[in-house]
Design a binder for these strands. Structure first.
Lengths: 226, 226
DNA sequence: GGTGGGTCAAATCTCGATAAAAATACCGGG
DNA sequence: CCCGGTATTTTTATCGAGATTTGACCCACC
């Protein structure tokens, strides 16, 4: 009954859910490379579970556009391309702009506190260079949007975030991108949001994305990620 | 052994894919009512297949927001509400506007012909009141957007279409909505699109949605659908 | 030497059964 | 008469094996 899952303490939830989280993390972080064939049996053994949960998790990831399915021919991780990346970036700019403005329009004290808290946690993780920075980074960005009373929109943004960050992982973490003062950019965004200045906040947020995007786009164009 | 490739033939594809299409159709068309519990065994027998394909199909539908999953407690069809409907309508207006403009901007002869063809088929089905009108209606609307070089955006629009049309089915087909001259609205949209007049086309398309939306919204508000 | 068909291994997909969990019915006590 | 805890029943989630399909290899044949 006491099964020790050596991978980590991912014991909560059903097997399907655990596998889902594990696989998504592996794909987003580039452990499973773009276009790689995903054999059920291999993943089952690797994750210490049966074939059914793996299959179900892969189905879910298919809807997230992180896995592609070919009928009767199994699963593989989604491919990458410069055009795909450009599309993600563009959609993010449109949709996060929309969500951010609505979030600010609905501003409440509770929401502002959530944003401040999320920012603080991310900041601390960045200073200490802890492992969970990326998760907290996503949490911060989603918290900005979270006050838009629009669950579908938020879900779409969340998925686009994952698709986007995958490219950043693939580009590696030690790249010059970090030399930019990302912390200041975040702080500036936070300030504008707390001032309820939607135009400034949106401009800064989108600039934040576009700068990173242009950088990654360059790498893709050079074929450095292919 | 040659297989007959007929669109009406529900035998093509894997069992999972068949079940997926069947269930989605049943949910969108209201055969399975909002919030209804979806028991695996019942659906297996009803669809003449095993539990695994049903389970997998339900997982996929979860990502389409047509089914809700509660861990360890099975699946049920997504609920409905006035706010949910309003959100769908709003997002559709934003995203289809975006897609339509890009589609028109990329106009090609091939695309224009696809649009004309899709419109003709829908028109004919409406005149003859054939069963497949709704499918062709969706095909027409998607064809308008299909020239936007943005597969992710198109997928989102397709999903939102399904979520939206579900409300229309739930309201019933014999309602006064059909008394509007929908055919003319479609023809006007088509004309503006073929004239490559993005502003007019977008205005008409959104008006088309909002009119239907306001009508359905009224029904929801009255609790007629609850 | 290149092409086409047939065979074989590998992987997917599906099924039925088992174990775990939740919902329901039951019963004794307050 | 109502409430809380236990037993039963229903339903879900998971597993392991069998059936089908795919893709590759090899050999015969043109």
């Amino acid at each position: 009954m006491d099964t020790f899952n050596q991978s980590s303490d991912f014991e909560e939830g059903s097997a399907t859910h655990r596998v889902y989280r594990a696989l998504r993390s592996m794909i987003v972080r580039g452990v499973l490379k773009p276009g790689e064939k995903l054999k059920i049996e291999g993943l089952s053994k690797r994750l210490g579970t049966g074939a059914s949960p793996v299959r179900e998790a892969l189905s879910l990831l298919t809807s997230d556009s992180l896995v592609e399915r070919i009928d009767q021919r199994g699963f593989r991780t989604a491919g990458i391309s410069a055009t795909n990346f450009a599309e993600i970036l563009k959609l993010r700019c449109v949709l996060e702009d929309l969500a951010l403005r609505e979030s600010i329009a609905n501003a409440t004290q509770d929401w502002e506190e959530r944003v401040v808290l999320a920012h603080h946690r991310m900041q601390r993780a960045q200073n200490r260079k802890t492992e969970d920075f990326e998760d907290l980074h996503k949490a911060f960005h989603m918290s900005l949007l979270s006050n838009a009373q629009s669950p579908i929109l938020l879900q779409i943004c969340s998925r686009l975030y994952d698709l986007n960050i995958r490219y950043r992982y693939l580009a590696g973490h030690d790249i010059s991108y970090q030399q930019r003062d990302v912390a200041k950019e975040h702080a500036d965004i936070l300030a504008a949001v707390l001032a309820l200045d939607a135009d400034t906040a949106s401009t800064r947020l989108l600039e934040h994305y576009k700068t990173t995007g242009a950088f990654l786009s360059g790498l893709l164009g050079d074929g450095a990620l292919a």
